[in-house]
Design a protein around this nucleic acid. Structure first.
Lengths: 229, 229
DNA sequence: CGCTGTGTTGACAGGTCTCAATATAAGTGG
DNA sequence: CCACTTATATTGAGACCTGTCAACACAGCG
């Protein structure tokens, strides 16, 4: 398995340090907020959401994770986990205990740095979504999220074009973007009417990525080269 | 200077690695989004905002930083900085180049880990604010932010009680919480009328922290012990 | 085949925004 | 120290976006 931009020997070390692969099915809870956590996860396959539940029953989806993402990083500094990790599809993860994570810091500094940088990329996505939710209309919010996921997939599957398979419900999208599922449905209809996207259960089609990106008001993020030695 | 939970020798190493202290005045821009960045900053004194500007002129304040915070971390993975760092008061920072940051990974692993954990704490605050902005009313949003800042100050000044000196404008608060300054003003008035807070230019008074916390819908975050091992 | 989750649509209510005006405080230059 | 300018705060009226409530259609699944 290729992990970030590490060389083969480092990947081997990494896999050696990880616990066995864990498998989950759709709707399985990988970890629940409010409970103690002693490990993080590297998502190897499938889709996972991380979400927060509020006392009034509202749910905020914090991130929609794809393979390569690190899960549960906030647990490294919290007594009780802040996020619930839910498998959206069949899922495969590597579990990495906090102990191992910090042993990387002592013994495999490039590995530790690679994990830090991956986590930092996820923070950028969080910043962008905060800006989208805080300062843009519902239609722009959806556009931002679709583009973000599209861009992340494109990093590993550049030929994927404008088809965007998204195994999440409209309720999930609404919970990620701070609106009601009813309004989410109307926004999809509106963007469809403007011929900017197509939608069908489980996926979108982005009809004009450039136009969508301008509309979204958020920039395309270019990652810097990694691991300045 | 005490840095995180490092011992004295580590702090000395750290200060040795840093460039000289930099000073800024109110409204000075420490770093601007869209430009290249080759360093992060440790905020040693004063208040700093990190913000994103959207093409339509809207501004999202991503974080309001207090001493001890790391600034510009997203720049470690980006070709162009995503956030503008603005001094809200007179400010003192330590500049740490990305090169030095990664040399910590190779040579001072505990230092690298400490920086990672501090950054992770700031991510938790971001997650909480996303939940607040996405899923709670404007009055609850303001309450969450005030409590977050209150709690962070209380870590170093436990005797501070309910007085909250906040050298930011209502415009800033509105930009941090995804609303208009006009509505921000109304929310303050509303919470004041409910006798939950007092307000005067430059500061709040939290009249009943417990009641405010329940009202905010967000939990109080307890940090885990650091640096396992 | 019924059940449950998901998607879709309509009418209406409500929170927040926009526009406009004024008040107050802070900053600047004489 | 005062007069002027600018930034910040405050208030009102109306519009608009999004939420709420209700009903129904459709799909997947046991």
């Amino acid at each position: 398995m290729q992990i970030f931009n590490l060389d083969e020997a480092e990947c081997t070390r990494f896999e050696h340090a990880c616990g066995p692969r864990l498998l989950f099915g759709r709707h399985d809870i990988i970890h629940e907020e409010g409970k103690q956590s002693d490990s993080i996860y590297l998502l190897a396959g499938g889709w996972v959401t991380s979400s927060m539940l509020l006392p009034d029953g509202e749910r905020q989806i914090v991130s929609i994770h794809l393979p390569g993402d690190l899960l549960g990083m906030s647990g490294t500094v919290l007594a009780l986990a802040a996020e619930t990790l839910t498998a959206v599809t069949a899922v495969e993860v590597f579990r990495i205990s906090h102990i191992d994570l910090f042993s990387f810091y002592r013994e495999h500094s490039r590995l530790a740095a690679a994990l830090f940088l991956q986590d930092q990329k996820q923070s950028v996505a969080l910043i962008d979504r905060l800006a989208a939710v805080g300062r843009t209309s519902s239609a722009r919010r959806l556009t931002s999220l679709l583009l973000n996921i599209h861009d992340r997939i494109a990093l590993t599957q550049p030929d994927n074009g404008a088809i965007l398979e998204l195994p999440v419900t409209q309720v999930d999208l609404a919970d990620a973007l701070g609106m009601t599922p009813i309004h989410m449905n109307r926004v999809i209809k509106e963007l469809k009417a403007a011929n900017l996207i197509d939608y069908s259960r489980g996926g979108f089609r982005l009809n004009d990525v450039q136009k969508l990106r301008t509309f979204s008001l958020l920039p395309n993020r270019n990652w810097a080269e990694h691991l300045p030695t």
